[in-house]
Design a protein around this nucleic acid. Structure first.
Length: 528
RNA sequence: GCCCCUAUAGCUCAAUUGGCAGAGCAUCUGACUCUUAAUCAGAGGGUUCAUGGUUCAAGUCCAUGUGGGGGCACCA
């Protein structure tokens, strides 16, 4: 970003907007009002106020008040005519108090119409000198778009039928020194939307709702797990070994101990230590950090849920996954058939279950056991074949050919054991791991295992994985402390990981992960 | 790390073949006591991301850099 787009901070002279706003700020102070406001009790949310529209009555000059004609969506086209037919009298509504940001202003002679917005909605204020008095009307003259104001008044309708607060008293709650974005189009530049998320939340359609839905989804997940007796914990984010996944970590350093540290790339190994310790149902919902590329589906820090249940297995986790997802959809008040881009996802449980083998044959067109065929297919797809374990190669083909086809939701089950070093093998077939991944729109959203609890096998698998791999590329950094924990006996268990950001993307129809992370990683503004 | 696209007023966007840098919103002044992205009349607002280059002349063409977007790679 160039310097010319940077904010007005710094030595540059204040722009024309700021100068005008500071002048008004000064006038507000002159009127004896605090331009930065103070506590404002007992206001109602604008959404709540709007829901009281039916309390507005018409009070004729003589006789009993009566309700307005039923208005399905707010205002009838002929409200003005209806009012004229009623003859003498006036509208009477409940007394309300609201506060919000000024998003539109219209002057009509000595009247002011102002739209204020809080996080539940917008409402129009009618400001006339007659109603608010000399001083408040003078105050209203100092209002700019973006200012925060409060109002006491009567819920009412204008002649056009618009639901309005007829202002009786105005309160100034906070000045904005900067002009808001263009009112027709809002902020368009994706960089500015992420960098100045506060503006995006206020002025871009659907952004507030999306992030409130994110919060509801996370609340729902905690509730679902809590109802089933799971205990939430907070593991360390500073690790000495970046274990539990295959990803490059962020490196850092502890000064007093003069010790290298890494930020965690997964939650897994500490949760399993807690299984050993007797926490039979345990989970963490927290941030992990992976020092990798950025894409519409990847942010360097993201939110992960990992759940472990003693004496369960991966099938237990499949059922739990369905519960977590469908409950989350209910929590945001959405139907089980959800739009995503041009497609629709049907979350009605049970989700489809297909084996890795079956899907491989269907979409790659060759048998996963036919190694020569896989090799030639891999070459066709420009996949590196030299010195790779057959199953690793097979999985590369799977990712290239199969995953994009998995519109889902579909549980892919029974992975080749060799690519799952933390997973128990199937008793009936030790070549296969008791693992599933949940795919939606070609995206991996969940990953679950029957957890490996044999310490000798675990140690051996760590060792095997290490061979021939640069240390930071391997998921299986030898973690002696973890193996020692397993040696004390970990119950057989099911484990589940869910990428919360991706789940939120799917449930809120968001095309990129940056749309569901409030502050995604950006380069510093104006960096060289 | 590689490839493609992109950067013009506070914001959203124009600018013909290389020929005087424009509009809407916002701001300021004025009119209007039921407006609805209010309207009407006027005014001010620019280092065209940066640095070089080509040219009589560069927002426009070229090179390099920076930010952003998209794709690839990376990501079990």
């Amino acid at each position: 970003m160039s310097g010319s787009k940077s904010s007005s901070s710094g030595p540059a002279a204040p722009g024309i907007h700021e100068t005008s706003r500071r002048e008004k700020l000064r006038k507000i102070a002159e009127l004896g009002r605090d331009p930065w406001g103070s506590r404002f009790d007992d206001r109602a949310a604008i959404g709540e106020i709007r829901s009281r529209a039916d309390e507005i009555h018409f009070q004729p000059a003589s006789g009993e008040p009566f309700a307005l004609p039923l208005m399905a969506d707010g205002s009838p086209p002929d409200f003005r005519a209806w009012l004229n037919e009623q003859g003498a009298g006036q509208l009477v509504g409940p007394q309300v108090r609201a506060a919000g940001r000024i998003v539109l202003q219209r002057k009509a002679g000595k009247l002011r119409f102002i739209d204020i917005q809080d996080w539940t909605g917008r409402i129009q204020l009618f400001i006339g000198k007659q109603q608010v008095g000399e001083s408040d009307f003078e105050l209203a003259g100092q209002f700019d778009l973006g200012d925060l104001v409060g109002v006491d008044g009567m819920l009412w309708r204008t002649k056009t039928g618009e639901l309005t607060i007829l202002a009786e008293r105005l309160h100034f709650l906070g000045k904005s020194l900067e002009p808001p974005p263009e009112k027709h189009h809002g902020l368009q530049d994706p960089e500015l939307r992420q960098r100045m998320r506060y503006l995006d939340l206020t002025y871009s359609e659907g952004v507030m709702e999306r992030f409130l839905n994110r919060a509801k989804i996370i609340q729902s997940i905690r509730r679902t797990l809590g109802d089933r007796g799971f205990c939430e914990i907070e593991g360390p984010t500073l690790h000495t070994i970046a274990g539990g996944a295959a990803a490059r970590p962020f490196r850092t350093h502890h000064n007093a101990l003069d010790m290298p540290l890494v930020l965690r790339i997964a939650l897994e190994l500490h949760l399993k230590r807690l299984l050993v310790g007797g926490m039979e149902r345990v989970y963490e919902l927290g941030r992990v950090y992976r020092n990798e590329g950025i894409s519409p589906r990847h942010n360097p820090e993201f939110t992960m849920l990992e759940v472990y249940q003693a004496y369960g297995d991966y099938r237990t986790m499949m059922e739990l996954t369905e519960q977590l997802v469908t409950q989350a959809i209910r929590a945001i008040g959405a139907p089980l058939r959800l739009p995503y881009g041009d497609a629709e996802i049907d979350f009605t449980p049970p989700f489809a279950r297909h084996t890795y083998h079956e899907l491989f044959e269907r979409y790659a067109g060759v048998s996963p056991d036919d190694l020569p065929a896989i090799r030639s297919l891999a070459k066709e797809l420009d996949i590196e074949t030299a010195n790779r374990h057959p199953d690793v190669l097979k999985n590369a083909v799977f990712e290239e050919r199969v995953e994009d086809q998995l519109h889902g939701p579909v549980f892919v089950i029974d992975y080749p054991a060799s690519i799952c070093p933390l997973t128990k093998r199937k008793a009936s077939n030790p070549e296969l791991a008791e693992r599933f991944e949940l795919f939606l729109c070609g995206m991996e959203v969940a990953n679950a295992y029957t957890e490996l609890n044999d310490p000798d096998l675990q140690e051996q698998l760590f060792q095997t994985q290490l061979e021939g791999l640069p240390e930071e590329d391997s998921m299986a950094k030898m973690d002696h402390d973890f193996v020692r924990a397993l040696r004390h006996g970990m119950p057989p268990a099911g484990g589940l990981g869910i990428g919360i950001d991706r789940l939120v993307m799917l449930l809120t129809n968001s095309p990129t992960i940056r749309d569901v992370i409030l502050f995604p990683l950006l380069r510093p503004e104006g960096s060289p």
